[in-house]
Write a protein that binds this DNA or RNA. Structure first.
Length: 657
RNA sequence: GCUCCCGUAGCUCAGUAGGAUAGAGCAGUUCCCUUCUAAGGAAAAGGUCGGGUGUUCGAAUCACCCCGGGAGCGCCA
């Protein structure tokens, strides 16, 4: 049992004993200031009202009760205390300070099984479908997609680490307007040549934004694109085939970008296959029969099929005023969501419902699958196919949990999909589907200006836009980081690892749900709170360890604990220990909250503590044998925890820097 | 018009299941390499937590109202 649960148990017991109250939950936190202790609880203050007593009195009484319990761990038949002290303090906190012995024993826990420290193994591996990246196959990926992919890879690795079986899906809309626009542009804009670009998707980036602006200004071109879209409905038409080829060509380039970052996938889902296999038709059969899905015979959405979104139960007692505004609104905005257009073609949201029914295995059909031959990743990458030539012994359908790393602008569509699943009676599936709605990546005015964006309007941030051709391509960003690292440090072996560390950490260190303002100069400065800082600390521990032939010996635990009991170790050493034991809870929390920044912050703090220690105390020339042994164990533990932590962030720990 | 998100140091951001003195990094000012990696460490400086009112033992965190920024509400995807 972990320390937190043990503590919780003791607190419950004491409260029950003293006040005959069964606590619903025990609030435990790490005090801000470590001199107060390692854990603190506010139960006394929470109880104050119920038991009508001064919080400090309650804290005192609970504290004395807990002090009377035997709080110990047993190693080799000997008992060692867990807490150094248990105190109460104004205004009513109870503080628990972990003992040196207990803190030290964590090193044994880490070193005995380093790969698994912080992980957990579930007996029934739940299958997770994780959808991320999803760049439209008509242009190069930019740093907004980068944030998506990094977040996706973080989730892939942490959920695997926590015992889930994760399958990564990359959805590619090979039949959409965006590809149609690019495809028209390639034909018409002959003055832009692919040979002028380092990658085909970079060429497509320019073609797309230029074509898009032409189409916006020209009704004939608009019509032409509509006609093309119409032809694409038939998956066997020459237009469809041509378009799919173009999409595939660009997809291959995008995958090269992600390969360079070390991000890989299990399966590519082609939208054209969803269409060709008539998954939508299957889903629609079920949807049509539902009372919350209806055909609009008249009104502004006449001829369409809609899913009910508006809450009819809500507006029982509406004021005149709100009724009026509602009527006004009705003229402009359809409250329910159209899933089939009047011309009979499903909308994107409609197709997405079908796609999600497939994910959960609710649609009765599956894709065929064939192995991809892009050569962009070492593990198998599968492509969906609509033909019967696919592998039969593999399926990505029928998962337990769905995680979608998709931008916030699609929140509404995702809600409709969830709601539709619920309407169809798949309540559990609906609840097991989570939209990880990460924040937008904006450009700082300075960075925007450098890209040639007009910043005379003086905004504080500028959104990227594929349509306008505004944005920093991932490939270009990577190249700039490479150049910066080489100009600072010359060429070195681990350049690619360090560059990926810099790039990925930069994307993961912020709160997932917060919009971020990307400033290139800032991102290129990889000092301080950055990936390379963590990697550097790792390499530093490696360097120390490589200088000795020291080996961890777990049989020494009793002997060491006895020494630890009676010796005063340095504050700087204790400080590292006080952070090390938190790793498992940090991993669990950052996974459950989809918050890599929690792990980033933790690893940074851990490194700071270690570096402070490193700077002040000598490891290899420690004053006595035990100190040296202890400091090597500490260094080795940091080494293992950092490599585990970096791995979860999708970052390679370089042996040397 | 309606809904949602955001506003914390010069800049970029942590901190929001209410907790103890609001924290980092960058930039700027000082120090520390004859010692295990200076991509490092130490110190000082930097704040009306957008504004106001309220809830309570306690508010950056919760509620309400303003102000400022962004996104969504497509027969686009």
């Amino acid at each position: 049992m972990d320390i937190k649960s043990i503590l919780e148990q003791y607190i419950r017991k004491a409260v029950k004993q003293k006040y005959d109250v069964e606590l619903e939950k025990v609030h435990l936190e790490h005090p801000e200031n470590e001199k107060w202790g390692d854990y603190a609880t506010n139960v006394a203050m929470e109880l104050a009202k119920a038991v009508k007593q001064n919080p400090i009195e309650i804290a005192k009484s609970i504290c004395y009760e807990i002090r009377g319990y035997e709080l110990s761990i047993t190693e080799i038949d000997k008992k060692y205390k867990i807490f150094e002290e248990v105190n109460f303090v104004q205004p009513g906190f109870i503080n628990f300070k972990l003992s040196q012995e207990w803190l030290f024993s964590v090193l044994y826990l880490i070193l005995a099984d380093p790969e698994d420290y912080g992980s957990s193994e579930l007996v029934n591996k739940k299958r997770v479908a994780l959808e991320h990246s999803n760049v439209n196959p008509n242009k190069a990926a930019h740093i907004g997609h980068l944030r998506n992919a990094c977040l996706g890879q973080f989730l892939e690795r942490t959920y695997e680490f926590l015992g889930y079986h994760v399958e990564v899906q990359y959805y590619t809309n090979d039949l959409g307007v965006q590809v149609a626009t690019s495809s028209m542009g390639i034909e018409k804009l002959q003055d832009i040549k692919p040979s002028g670009y380092k990658k085909y998707d970079h060429y497509a980036w320019d073609v797309y934004s230029k074509m898009e602006s032409y189409i916006n200004e020209n009704d004939d071109l608009k019509k032409e694109r509509e006609n093309l879209m119409h032809k694409l409905e038939d998956s066997t038409s020459t237009e469809s085939i041509k378009q799919k080829e173009l999409a595939q060509k660009i997809l291959a380039e995008q995958l090269k970008t992600f390969q360079n970052l070390g991000v890989d996938y299990d399966v590519i889902i082609y939208e054209s296959d969803i269409v060709a296999l008539k998954m939508w038709e299957k889903a629609f059969e079920k949807l049509k029969q539902n009372e919350n899905v209806y055909y609009a015979a008249e009104g502004k959405s006449a001829g369409c099929w809609l899913v009910k979104v508006s809450n009819s139960a809500k507006g029982k007692e509406e004021s005149e005023e709100s009724k009026n505004t509602k009527e006004n609104k009705n003229e402009e905005i359809e409250e329910d969501k159209i899933i089939v257009r009047a011309n009979g073609i499903p909308t994107y949201t409609g197709k997405d419902i079908a796609y999600h029914m497939w994910k959960f295995g609710l649609i009765g059909i599956d894709f065929g699958y064939k192995k991809a031959e892009f050569g962009t990743q070492s593990k198998d990458l599968w492509l969906t196919t609509s033909k019967g030539d696919g592998q039969k012994n593999i399926s990505f359908s029928g998962v337990d949990i769905v995680l979608n790393v998709i931008g916030g602008e699609q929140t509404y569509a995702m809600e409709v999909v969830k709601k539709s699943l619920e309407y169809l009676g798949f309540k559990e599936e609906s609840q097991n589907m989570t939209h990880i709605n990460y924040g937008f990546v904006y450009l700082s005015p300075k960075t925007a200006q450098n890209l040639g964006i007009d910043t005379s309007d003086g905004k504080e941030k500028y959104g990227m836009s594929g349509r306008k051709g505004w944005g920093i391509k991932i490939d270009d960003f990577i190249e700039l980081v490479d150049e910066k690292l080489m100009s600072d440090h010359g060429e070195f072996e681990s350049l690619k690892d360090v560059r990926n560390g810099a790039v990925k950490f930069e994307m993961l260190k912020f709160n997932t749900f917060q919009d971020i303002v990307f400033d290139l100069d800032n991102a290129l400065n990889v000092k301080g709170f950055s990936g390379p800082y963590i990697q550097y600390t790792y390499a530093r521990t490696n360097s120390v360890l490589e200088r000795t032939n020291w080996m961890f010996d777990k049989s020494l635990i009793g002997y060491h604990l006895d020494i630890m009991k009676n010796s005063n170790i340095n504050d700087k050493e204790v400080s590292v220990l006080r952070s090390l034991y938190k790793f498992p809870e940090i991993v669990a929390r950052s996974a459950m909250e989809f918050a890599p920044n929690i792990l980033c912050n933790y690893l940074y703090d851990l490194c700071q503590r270690y570096n402070t220690f490193y700077n002040e105390l000598s490891i290899l020339n420690a004053p006595d044998e035990f100190s040296k042994e202890f400091r090597l164990m500490l260094t080795s533990s940091i080494n293992r925890v950092l490599s585990n932590g970096l791995f979860l962030l999708g970052i390679t720990a370089p042996r040397k820097m």
